[in-house]
Structures are given as C-alpha cells and as structure tokens.
Design a protein around this nucleic acid. Structure first.
Lengths: 220, 220
DNA sequence: GGGACCAGCATTGCATACAATTCGCCGTCG
DNA sequence: CGACGGCGAATTGTATGCAATGCTGGTCCC
C-alpha cells in the first residue's frame, strides 16, 4: 500500500472519469477517507490537485463537488484541443524520425483493420491504439508543456466518453484521418498534418454535439 | 490574518517571481512554516499548488525546489504564448464590443504616451497598462480556459522579468504593436489581430534571447 | 401563517504529534 | 586509500485532535 495521496488521487479520479461519481455530487473528506482507508490529510491533497486539474470544483469551507460541464465548457475544450493538437501535429511533422514514423504507420494500419473487422463499436484495443497514436505525436513534437496542456484537456470526462460513443461511420472517418496524418508526416508537411489533426478534433466535436442528450443519464 | 493557505501561497509565489528565492533553491516546509507563521499543513497545500502551476518542482520524499529554467523551457513558453495569445486576439477581433474597443484604444494611446515621455525604461504605470491590455483581450475572447492557460504561462518568472528589461526601441515597437492591434480590432480582422499578436510575442522572445546571459545573476 | 434569528451539528481548516523515508557521516573492510 | 554499509539526524508523509466556519431545523416575533 504505497503512497496514500497517490491512491486517493487515482481512486477519486477514476470515479469521476467513469461516471461513478455524478457531476455536482459533493465529496466529503471524511467519507472518502474511510472508504479509501487513509486519513483526511492525503485526501485533502488529492482533492486540491483534482481541483487545479479542473475535475472538481472547490469552494472554501464548503468542500469539493464533482465538476459539472456546461455546453460552453465543451465548446472551449474542443476548440482548445483543436488549436493545441494541430500545433503539435505540425511540430511533429517537422521533427519526425523514421522510427516514430514506422510506429505511427503501424498504429494507423492496425486501427484501420480493427475498425474494418470490429463490430462497429470502439474496442479497448482500438481505444488504446488511438491513445498511443496521439501521445506519440506529442512526444515527437517535443514540447513538454504543450503535451501537458493537451493531456489536461484530454482527461476531461467529456472527452474520454466521446470516443466510446463513436458510430461505425465516425470510426471509419477517424481511421482515415490517422492514415492521412501518416502521409502528411511522410512528406514532412507541417501544414497538412496540422490541418488533418484539426479536422480530426472538429469531427470529434461534431460527434459529441450530435449525441442523444439523454445518453449520459441512460447509461448510468 | 485570513486564510493560512492563501498567505503561504502568495508569499512563496512572490518570492519566486521577484527572484528572492533563487532557482534550484530547496524549500523546507518547516522553515517556511516558521517564517510565515503557520503550521506545515497549509504550507504543504501551497507548495503542491505551486508545483502544479510549474513554479516549483516537487520530488516525493525530497521536498520542493524552485523551478529552474533551461533554454528549451523558455522557447516552449514563448512558443505556446504566441500560439495561445494570437488565438485569443483572433477570437477577440470577432467578438469585439464598442465599449471594450474604446478601453483598448485608450490603453494603447496611454502606453504610447508613456513610452514617448518616459525615461526609456518601463515604468510601473506602463507595466500595468500593458497587463490590462492583454487581459482585456482575453476577456473579450470569452474563453475562460484559454485565459487560464495564458495566465499560467505569463506568470512564469522568465516572462515577468522580460518586460522589465525592454530597451527604448523595444518599448516603441511594443507600443506600436498595441496601436496596430486596436486597428485590427476596429476592422474586426481576426487574421490581422492574431498576426500582430504573434509578432508581439515573438518580439518579446527576441528581447529575452538578446539578453546579457549574466544579467540575472548580476541583478541579485 | 410566514419570515428572521438563534442554537446545535456537520464539515472543513489548521495545528501538532508520530511514523517512514532519505541522505550524509563515519567507521570498517578490502 | 577508496568503496561499501549501517547508523543517525533531518525532513517529508500521515494521522489525529481541536478550532472555526457554514448549514439546518426549530422557535419566536410580527
């Protein structure tokens, strides 16, 4: 049982991300402490951290609540993601190495096959490959702060859940974006790579926006 | 004596920003607690917060150290600032209101006069007007997360100290950028506004890069 | 009957005490 | 003489207790 703060952080974070803790729900330090099996001190540190990361909102003397997301927030998040990820893709195109290019190509190909052979909904393997693809681009881009900003946006519950709701057509478009990005990287065309990435993110926003508004509650 | 955490946070933050705490210096919780007059608990919360904001780095079981800045970090910071602030300027151009435009015009004019009549070094009034100008643009842009990201970058010690080292020629160019941005806003030209802002930030980077490398240490 | 105030309680904020970990020092051994 | 290892002080990590703050329910006055 390693670090108490780390355990508390991970448990609460996971709870928020996979919806076990509903938006707006109040988190009492004492309850969490008992549930996780540590004292209130590490709980407090974990909650402060999650607050600064935007996963919950903290009111002095009134405790923490799971963050709630207005439509404007969603728009902001996707808009910034488009800006930052397309920038990262452009940088990556300039600094692409043969090795990284091989790995990206392999990931893109595998995702295409998974989509073609899958049952139409995103599998775990596909989700993981998608995540690897984006992270590798950030790594090649070589800007740690940029990567940190993107990851901070990507972990927002809304973003995480969007990919799981992709329909077959969305998945095919997504896979084709990945293939196209690899082509852009092969040509070291920063403008092309950035443009495809922007399309990729805006398409994700469209998928989110076209959701059944009751889908979230229904899934609980 | 209001909130202990807030006091600790502000005091340590100020200490880092105006160089009283040297980069790389270790911060011991007990020492800070005694100096500020609170217990270690609020100190710890403040340090964790400053860690996440990037002003210091935290190693488990080894305490906190004031962040040190490699050249690559500087490049990253200015590069991201250029990306984010130019984006904000573009958004602001689209959403500009007559009232905000008046205030921006007044700030730009005032800064121009301060530069013309000043002694060649940036006065407090100029620094404040400059800060107001940039914040107002972010407000008009209307994206809270974007504003938060920019402010997070702007408070980096390196950025703060750069403006103070502006030479007369830098100040004149800066003032002229502000005037030009107002013109772009008057024309609701997002592309123009974004472009000027990008120039504005890149010029700041050039000013930093042209510094005397010993200037920081010599000032201590 | 409705609204404002006050008391008691629940919960967070801070301080202190204790446990665990790290790092430096020193002695010993190769 | 240098390297390795263990002991101890210093420092961080965690737990607990107490103080302060905000919320809730009930009562009293209008």
């Amino acid at each position: 049982m390693a670090k108490a703060v780390e355990r508390a952080y991970q448990i609460v974070r996971r709870g928020i991300l996979d919806g076990r803790l509903a938006p707006g729900e109040r988190l009492k330090e004492e309850d969490l402490a008992q549930e996780i099996g540590v004292s209130r001190t590490p709980i407090r540190e974990a909650l402060r951290r999650l607050d600064l990361e935007g996963l919950l909102s903290f009111v002095p003397n009134q405790g923490a609540r799971v963050a709630d997301w207005a439509d404007q927030d969603i728009e902001e998040i996707f808009s910034l993601r488009a800006l930052l990820e397309s920038h990262a893709a452009g940088l990556a195109a300039q600094r692409m190495t043969p090795d990284a290019l091989d790995r990206l190509r392999e990931l893109a190909t595998r995702m295409e096959q998974l989509v073609a052979s899958g049952d139409g909904s995103p599998s775990d393997a596909l989700t993981e490959a998608n995540s690897d693809f984006h992270h590798l681009i950030q790594e090649v881009a070589g800007n740690r702060r940029l990567a940190a900003m993107i990851n901070n946006l990507m972990e927002m519950p809304v973003i995480v859940s969007t990919f799981r709701r992709y329909r077959p057509a969305d998945l095919r478009r997504s896979a084709s974006h990945h293939i196209e990005m690899v082509a852009a990287f092969e040509n070291r065309d920063a403008d092309w790579a950035a443009s495809v990435m922007r399309s990729h993110v805006r398409a994700a926003y469209a998928t989110y926006a076209a959701r059944d508004p009751g889908a979230i509650k229904a899934a609980e």
